[in-house]
Structures are given as structure tokens and as C-alpha cells.
Amino acid sequence: MSNQIYDFEPWINIVEPLPGESISHFLGRFERANLLTGYQVGREARIGAVVSRWKKLYLNPFPTQQELEALAQVVEVQVDKLLEMLPPKGMTMKPRPIRLCGACYGEVPYHRIEWQFKEKMKCDRHQLGLLTKCTNCETLFAIPADWVEEKCFHCSLSFAKMAKRQKHY
């Protein structure tokens, strides 16, 4: 065996953002695809623990342009795409409880940032009230970054099946 050192660029698995996806859900997908933690992503981007705050949808203070540029380099996504995962300027967020439309999730499984807007109580697409807990066991939803199996982590009811118990608005 030789002690040859190979000269190559590190690589990552590219994760494409989904339309309206929340930063929390995106970061969770990116971390799983690359076997990383939020801490490692923050360290690599040289922005520290702020990434862990974003995963929890704690966006106050709002991410700076410099932070977004640093994250964009690590996740290989353009800054404008990262901005689409955040609330628009002037929009108030409510990071807790996590909200979800089971009908939307059943169609395309990911967390939408708009579900966390403070004034948002219903899904405009399905005219259903947003859920804040499992319709079976009433456990509050985990942060979207942790949605690995697309179901309640307590009783395993799928998010899509929860749509049957969503109230029409």
C-alpha cells in the first residue's frame, strides 16, 4: 500500500428544494442525504449553531444575507431558493405548534413554510383546518427537520391519513 494522498474536491448529495418547502424540512432532508447533523452543517458554513435554530423554525433574528450565502455554498442551493423557504418580509411566523395539512402532505410529502404563518389557520388548497397534533393520539408534531417516516412518531399514523379527520373550513 502506498501513502499517496489523493487530491479531490469533497462532494455532497444535492437536495433540491421543493416549492414552498420550509427551511426546517429542507435542512432535515439535506442532513439525512449527507449523513450530517445541523451542528456539522453550521460548522461547515462557519455560521455555528444558528442552523439548529432554523431547523426549529426559530427565525428571530431573521437570517442575514451573509448567513444565507454561507449556507448556500454548503448545501449548493442558490440564496434566492433559500429565501423561498423563509417567510416573506413582514410576515409573522408561529414556530409552535408545528402545523400540517394532511391532504397536502398526502399529495407531496413535505412541510410547507406557509403552514407556520401566524395568521394561517387553514389550507387554501383543500379548505381544511391545519392540524397541530396527531388526530389519533393527540401528540404534537415534531419539528419538520425530524420528519423521517412521514408519520406520527408516537403512534405511527401517517400524516396523509390524518386528512380524513381534518375539519372543513
Rank of each mutant, 00 (worst) to 15 (best):
Y6P: 05
D7Y: 10
F8Y: 12
F8M: 13
P10H: 10
P10Y: 08
P10M: 13
I12W: 10
E16K: 15
P17I: 11
L18N: 08
L18K: 15
P19N: 03
P19G: 04
F26C: 05
G28A: 08
R29L: 05
F30Y: 15
F30N: 01
A33K: 13
N34K: 11
Y39I: 08
Y39D: 07
Q40M: 14
V41T: 12
V41W: 02
G42I: 00
G42N: 04
R43C: 08
R43I: 09
A45H: 07
R46N: 13
G48S: 11
V50Y: 06
V51A: 11
R53N: 13
L57Y: 03
N60G: 04
N60L: 07
P61G: 10
P63T: 08
T64A: 03
Q65F: 05
Q66A: 15
L68V: 08
E69Q: 14
A70D: 13
L71E: 08
Q73N: 13
V75T: 11
E76K: 15
E76S: 14
V77E: 03
D80P: 12
D80E: 13
K81P: 04
L82S: 04
L83Q: 09
E84I: 07
L86T: 03
L86P: 01
P87K: 02
P88V: 09
P88D: 09
T92D: 10
R96F: 06
C101W: 00
C101I: 01
A103W: 00
Y105D: 01
Y105V: 02
G106R: 00
Y110W: 05
E114I: 13
E114K: 12
E114N: 12
W115I: 00
W115F: 02
F117N: 05
E119G: 07
K120M: 14
C123H: 01
D124V: 10
H126Y: 07
H126M: 10
Q127I: 06
Q127C: 09
L128K: 02
L128W: 00
G129E: 15
G129Q: 15
G129Y: 14
G129I: 14
L130N: 01
L131Q: 02
T132W: 04
T139E: 13
T139F: 07
L140F: 14
F141M: 00
A142T: 11
I143E: 12
D146I: 01
W147I: 02
V148L: 12
E149T: 14
C152F: 00
F153V: 14
H154S: 15
L157G: 02
S158A: 11
A160T: 03
M162C: 03
A163F: 00
R165A: 12
Q166W: 01
H168N: 14
